[in-house]
Structures are given as C-alpha cells and as structure tokens.
C-alpha cells in the first residue's frame, strides 16, 4: 500500500513523456520516470520517496526496442533484465542481468531502471562501461546519443527532465571473451559483496566492479596492473586491490576488509582461469 497520492501518466511517445515530465516539474511537482517500478513502489511504500507523479515509459516504442543489426545491439531502456538475458544477444550483460534480484523480478526490472535507480549497485552498468556502449537520451534538444561512460559516473548524470531511451553496444563486444561473477554474503539472492565483469578487447582485459565501493566503477589503473603480464598473478592482485577509487564499502552485508579479501580471491580465480584458457 502506497499512502501518497500519485498521478499516473502513460505516454505513447517520447515527446509526450518529456513534455508531461517537464510540465510537472514546472508546476513544482515531483515526477519520476517509471519503468519496472520495483524500486519506486517499494521506496514509496516505505516513505523514503514521495513522488507526486509517475510517467510510465513502457508503452513508448523506442524504449521497448531490442534488436541487433550490423552496428551492434540496441536495447530500449524499458526492456526487462529477463528479456535481455533470454535474447542471448550480449552474453556478458545477460549474465549480469541474470544475477540481479531474482528471476521473477528480472521479468519486471528494466535496464533503464537498474541504471537510474538509487540502489547503489547498478550492476548492468558494468558491461556497458566495458563495451564502449553509447546511450540515447531524450530531452530539451530532442534525442542525443553519447558515450555511456560520459554520462555514467557511479550513477547516471542526466540533464533535467531527460529520459534514457536506448543503449547501443558495438558488435565486437557482443562476441568478445568475457567473465562475470557475483559474490554475496552467503545467500545467492542478495546484493553483491563484489560483483565483477570483465571483457577482453585485442587481448586486453577491461574490468569493472560493483559492491566493492559505494558506486560501480571501471578503473584504468586497475586494468593496467591486471594486464601487466610481467608481474606474477599474486602481485598483480595485491596491487590492484590497492587501487580502489575509495575505501571499500562496509555495511551489514559485509565489511570493507572482507570485501577486499573476496576481491582478491576473485581476481586470483579470474587471472588463473584466463591463464589456463578457460575464458
């Protein structure tokens, strides 16, 4: 039961959605773009957010697109995690999607919602940070398409009233060797202690993490160390663990110290698997 009164908008076009949202903002309302809704519903029930209007983007054709062509893969922001996983078009992203929440919720949670939500893990961002993905946003200037990395810094940095429409992933990334693992406290259905995604381009490993710090990140410094084959595995692992962008995250799921321990074991396994040709 959500106690607050909400106005519900279901636009059929991007322009309708944007206009409705913009007008609501001008009126001083607190609108939210709404896709899968799981986070908005639970937080509204708990009283931690009180949106006065929601703009449901699930019937906007551009947001529902899921297709691959010569340029690569195009994923509408309102595609569910389960659709992405079942499509098998981008195995690394599919693997990430398959470990967020649980299966039933994966049929609800959308790519856009996972990226734009307030829960800190945003695990779908990891494959996108690694794959030179681009993102289409609709706002005051109409549609703009920019590198994903230019608008995602721990979370999406959008312009006022802007809505995420699509993600574009270049073709090479869809077939590239990859690695994905998510470690939790000890229950499979849980937030990550450490979730890592790696993708290889031209023999170089790219890697991004969630759960390790208070936001998801990709680090060129860590990548440089891990790709330095002149150093033994354990030295690379230890070095990489010293290069986090901030102190490791600590909460009831696990202490920062323990997350580092998990990270090191995980990097060990990753590098060994790679060395042994298992990836």
């Amino acid at each position: 039961m959500i106690p607050c009164d909400v106005v519900y908008y279901r636009p059929g076009t991007l322009m309708e959605a944007y206009e409705a949202y913009r007008l609501l903002q001008i009126e001083g309302k607190k609108p939210l773009y709404y896709a899968g809704g799981s986070e908005i519903i639970t937080m509204s029930r708990a009283g931690s957010i009180r949106p006065s209007a929601i703009v449901d983007i699930k019937r906007i054709p551009e947001c529902m697109l899921l297709s691959a062509n010569d340029e690569g893969l195009h994923i509408g922001s309102a595609c569910t995690l389960n659709q992405i996983k079942e499509s098998r078009l981008f195995p690394l992203l599919g693997s990430s999607c398959g470990r967020i929440a649980d299966h039933t919720n994966q049929c609800r949670i959308t790519l856009g919602g996972n990226l734009c939500g307030t829960i800190i893990y945003r695990e779908t961002s990891l494959p996108l940070l690694l794959s030179d993905a681009r993102v289409s946003l609709f706002g005051s200037q109409g549609m703009r398409t920019v590198p994903f990395q230019s608008v995602f810094h721990g979370r999406m940095r959008l312009k006022p009233s802007e809505v995420v429409v699509q993600i574009h992933v270049p073709g090479w990334a869809l077939k590239a060797p990859f690695f994905h693992v998510k470690h939790t406290t000890n229950e499979k259905i849980d937030y990550p202690l450490v979730s890592a995604a790696a993708l290889w381009k031209d023999g170089n490993m790219r890697i991004a993490f969630s759960g390790l710090c208070s936001y998801p990140f990709r680090s060129s410094k860590i990548e440089a160390v891990l790709n330095d084959w002149s150093m033994p595995v354990s030295a690379r692992v230890d070095k990489a663990a010293e290069l986090l962008p901030e102190e490791p995250y600590s909460d009831v799921e696990g202490s920062g110290e323990y997350r580092l321990f998990v990270l090191k074991n995980m990097l060990h396994a990753l590098l060994e698997d790679y060395t042994n040709g298992k990836i």
């Binding site: 406290t185 000890n186 229950e187 499979k188 259905i189 849980d190 009831v252 799921e253």
Partner: peptide
Amino acid sequence: PQTPNLRTYKLLHIGQ
C-alpha cells in the same frame, strides 16, 4: 535493528 525486512535479513532459498 538494521535488517527488519526480507531483503537484508537472510533466509534460505531453494538451491542451497
């Protein structure tokens, strides 16, 4: 109490 909900309070699920 930090975990008064079924998301952060752990219960066994199927598979384990």
